[in-house]
Computed example of a mutant assay.
Amino acid sequence: MPAEAAEQDGGSSRFRVRLANFEGPFDLLLQLISQHQLDVTEVALHQVTDDFIAYTRALGAEWDLDEVTEFLVVAATLLDLKAARLLPAADVEDEDDLALLEARDLLFARLLQYRAYKQVAALFAELEAGALRRYPRSVALEERYLGLLPEVMLGVDPAKFAEIALAVFRPKPPPTVSLDHLHAGKVSVREHAAVLRVRLAEAGQATFTDLVSDCEHTIEVVARFLALLELYRESTVQFEQAEALDELHVRWTGGSVEQAAAAAEQDRANDEDEEYG
């Protein structure tokens, strides 16, 4: 193979093969053999290997890992193809089967993948180099576009800013651990039920927020809620809620105010009996 034809292939390897029947870049060998333009059995791979070892030794510390890797991949592919070509004729039905074996060779596929990765890496390097030549806009907005910007609506007046500043710079109180929950008094659900009976009987209906507006502690709110559940079980109240997590409306269905007051007195009496019983 003439050296001019080898150079037209554009081989990237600096190592060149010089044989009696071929001269050119080493990776061009595989291309010619796969295209049946050169018989692999006529290639002296041992001579190529010796020449490459001498070539890498001559480079010394400047040897290229990518070039050595490419040589190993191509050499392994050529060696595998040559072994397949040298098989006894009885093991191969015809020349088409042998050509199919060579075309689908695993090492040949790996070489193609290796070349594809090299091309993609070169493309990424080119894109990165191009991106380094780009610079962001560093000038002000053009005059004709200034009027298109919407006005900034902060919604905070100077008095609000002053209040925020005071909250930020005001000394924070030292953290304390509250012990109120350790000494919380007992809360009677019956007592709260008695309060709710009278209040709902007089108002007819109310929201849960209104019913707990006079509670000072969370435990009292819980007691009011449990009391409402007790009244609902007695069928004396009905709940209405438009949708989930919406305001809960409570409607009284337990009779007149007098009946509610009597039931409330009974709740208080039962509560006292349980306390002192």
Rank of each mutant, 00 (worst) to 15 (best):
E128H: 09
A129N: 01
G130W: 00
A131M: 07
A131T: 12
L132P: 02
L132N: 09
R133N: 14
R133A: 15
R133M: 13
Y135C: 10
Y135P: 00
R137P: 06
R137L: 12
A140R: 06
A140F: 00
L141K: 06
E142C: 08
E142R: 06
E143N: 09
R144D: 14
R144N: 10
R144G: 11
R144E: 15
R144A: 14
Y145D: 15
Y145R: 12
Y145E: 14
L146W: 06
L146V: 15
G147W: 00
L148V: 11
L148N: 11
L149F: 14
L149Q: 12
P150C: 07
P150Y: 03
P150V: 11
E151V: 10
V152I: 11
V152H: 02
V152F: 00
M153H: 08
M153N: 11
M153G: 11
L154I: 13
G155I: 08
G155A: 01
G155W: 01
V156I: 15
V156H: 04
D157G: 13
D157C: 06
P158V: 12
A159P: 02
K160G: 10
K160L: 12
K160S: 13
F161K: 12
A162S: 12
A162E: 14
A162V: 13
E163I: 07
E163K: 02
E163G: 08
I164D: 04
A165E: 14
L166I: 09
L166S: 06
L166A: 09
L166E: 10
A167P: 01
A167L: 07
A167M: 05
A167E: 08
V168G: 00
V168I: 09
F169I: 12
F169L: 09
R170Y: 03
R170L: 08
P171Y: 00
K172T: 14
K172P: 06
P173T: 08
P173N: 03
P173L: 01
P173A: 07
P174C: 08
P174Y: 05
P174H: 07
P174K: 05
P174D: 12
P175L: 09
P175K: 08
T176N: 03
T176R: 01
T176W: 03
V177I: 07
V177F: 04
S178W: 04
L179W: 03
D180T: 15
D180P: 05
D180H: 13
H181Y: 11
H181S: 15
H183Q: 11
H183A: 15
H183I: 15
A184K: 07
A184D: 13
G185M: 04
G185P: 05
K186T: 15
K186I: 15
V187G: 07
V187H: 05
S188N: 08
S188P: 07
S188Y: 09
V189P: 00
R190D: 15
R190E: 15
H192T: 11
H192N: 11
H192M: 10
H192E: 13
A194M: 08
A194R: 01
V195Y: 04
L196P: 06
L196A: 09
R197S: 07
R197D: 10
V198C: 06
V198P: 02
R199M: 08
L200C: 03
L200T: 09
A201K: 01
A201D: 04
E202W: 02
E202S: 08
E202I: 10
A203T: 10
A203R: 04
G204R: 03
G204A: 05
Q205A: 10
A206R: 02
T207L: 02
F208P: 05
T209V: 06
T209L: 03
T209G: 03
L211V: 08
